[in-house]
Design a protein around this nucleic acid. Structure first.
Lengths: 342, 342
DNA sequence: TGCAAATGCGCAATCGATTGCATTTTTATT
DNA sequence: AATAAAAATGCAATCGATTGCGCATTTGCA
């Protein structure tokens, strides 16, 4: 029929060529035991000759399965997130899944739009780290309602009961703060992120808890809340240093602000770590190579991505109903910016 | 029929509810002028009430169009590539396309497998930066043969005639080298990348040409070829410094090796840039914040991604047959590592 | 040789949306 | 009111692969 057209060969073309039915071709190509070896070989030979490639769209429609995992991150172009994506792709590819990706730019509106589009595209599962700005989660509840596997990583939504892969932010922050205390710093400030996100909320509380355990009075004025961009760092540290009783160390909610703070103080001639200790969070690549190198908390992005993919694939394929929250350990990396007792 | 099932509502469910035909529903939802406003409104109301979401799989099959752009990079988790991906996503999302992503890990075998899978998934177009290791390009020729838009970025294949987005590596390298010469460095070494990739090949030739223009004798022993990982940097610079007549400046094929070299020399007590000049390539985020900051060439990753997406979408939608190679300008960023004449 | 049990394969419906063409309904015109 | 013209909607095939069920052919065993 369309043998000579510019169109792709289908199982029907193969069937016509061999004067058999398309069902048989389909079964043969899927290695169905109901088809004899001899027939299978003939079919595969013709398929090869015609350059046949299965049309996954058709197959997906019939099977109601897209073999696709969606992943939504705030910003692709950021080391931690791209590491997670890389980890997801690594596992997904091996398991025969495609990965479609989108970034919310930390905007709720875009996130909603993306999530709906992912649903329309019938992704088999969705891995997401929610946008800073998102506060309503109906778009995600849709996935739960429809029983489509949903995995949060890093930034999870407490009120949605599903699988979650997080790092122990509380513990990480606790250890950071304890480390600063151990180094002899007394007044320790904290640059906190948006408190609607559990990650930043937990980091702040880990910090507070460490102070409490060490009988250090918690001083609200030493906490500065922002979105933790590189622009947020300087005004925050300026304000802190202008206090009547300024801090002598700071735990920054991420490495980006830690760097801003470090450069600001360095330029002011304040010696790091002798006069002032700095610790960040996330272990961005640059934190190791700046001078002084910045102490930080390692979040295993690639491993998180792998775990998230493994988890979602098992959910897709087994449909088991129990949800788990996997907390990956963090690692405190002590570098020069906070290490004055060598 | 399946009204109460656990299945998604379809246009047929809407049609049944209103006792009209599915065709009308389909047309109404697509805003076809052939349907009266009144009917459209009724249909949209029911669609909303049922929580109808179009099944893109079905639509894609019928339209023979997946609304999906594939992108293949060597490694997602690398700043330049993730920037490109981010740029692609930015444009693609706005135009209503999905982005499916995969990484070759610089392995030819995985690249081939990915590309075939992308084809089976009927991506509407493919954006790719080929793997270092790839030397046979039949898998890509398939896309050309099938008239599926194909855009190379950064690492292109000369023998395949299609759209390409590259930066002017030759020019960038030329300017780097000229800059080092202007700074008074005489013997200038070069860490080159795999010469089967045009990018690295062009960088080397830009370097050589700059030397020639300045009547500096080209010394083959000052060129070291490697895969430019951070591990490659140290042995390379060690070997160069052990030469009878060692270099006093180096143009590194990327920032990663530039950093390794910088740290190595700094630890040896060699003053940078006074005694030795270093320039990298790509403007990795860290190169700005290390000490001394590393001079480098800015490759506009995000913009490349945007351009690539724009180009491929225009190809998908217009099918115009002319291929273009877009060369984006690079920018020489002079920082402390090579700036001794202040 | 006879008949049941395997084995191999085909028919036709299905997944959900789209669309050329036909049909029905409405509107306009004389 | 009659008829042409325009507008609105429906029928049925289609995209390509999958699969339950049934039919036909082969094999096995007494």
């Amino acid at each position: 029929m369309n043998r000579n057209k510019n169109t792709e060969p289908t199982i029907h073309d193969i069937a016509r060529e061999l004067e058999i039915s398309a069902s048989t071709v389909s079964r043969a190509l899927n290695n169905n035991p109901r088809i004899s070896l001899k027939t299978k070989e003939k079919i595969k030979a013709v398929a090869d000759r015609l350059g046949y490639r299965p049309n996954t769209l058709a197959s997906n429609l019939r099977n109601k399965k897209s073999n696709t995992i969606g992943i939504v991150v705030p910003l692709i172009n950021r080391h931690f997130f791209s590491s997670v994506i890389s980890g997801v792709e690594d596992i997904a590819f091996k398991a025969g899944y495609n990965v479609v990706i989108s970034q919310s730019n930390d905007l709720a509106a875009k996130e909603i739009s993306i999530v709906q589009s992912m649903f329309s595209n019938r992704v088999d599962g969705l891995i997401i780290s929610i946008a800073m700005q998102t506060s309503n989660f109906d778009h995600l509840k849709l996935f739960r309602k429809k029983q489509i596997p949903l995995v949060f990583f890093d930034r999870a939504v407490p009120e949605i009961d599903t699988d979650k892969i997080v790092v122990d932010d509380f513990d990480g922050a606790f250890r950071v703060t304890q480390h600063l205390i151990d180094q002899g710093y007394k007044r320790i400030a904290h640059l906190a992120g948006p408190q609607n996100l559990t990650t930043y909320f937990d980091r702040k509380n880990g910090y507070i808890e460490a102070l409490r355990k060490n009988n250090i009075t918690f001083d609200e004025s030493l906490i500065n809340v922002s979105t933790l961009t590189s622009e947020d760092g300087v005004p925050a540290i300026e304000k802190l240093m202008a206090l009547h009783n300024p801090p002598e160390a700071i735990f920054c909610g991420n490495d980006t602000t830690a760097l801003s703070v470090m450069i600001y103080l360095r330029d002011k001639g304040i010696r790091i770590p002798e006069d002032f200790g700095i610790v960040g969070f996330s272990n961005e690549p640059f934190s190791k190579v700046v001078s002084p190198a910045i102490s930080t908390i390692l979040q295993p992005g690639f491993a998180m991505g792998q775990k998230a993919a493994e988890l979602i694939i098992s959910k897709i394929e087994n449909k088991d109903r129990t949800y788990q929250t996997i907390t990956l350990p963090t690692e405190l990396i002590i570098r020069d910016s906070s290490n004055r007792k060598k």
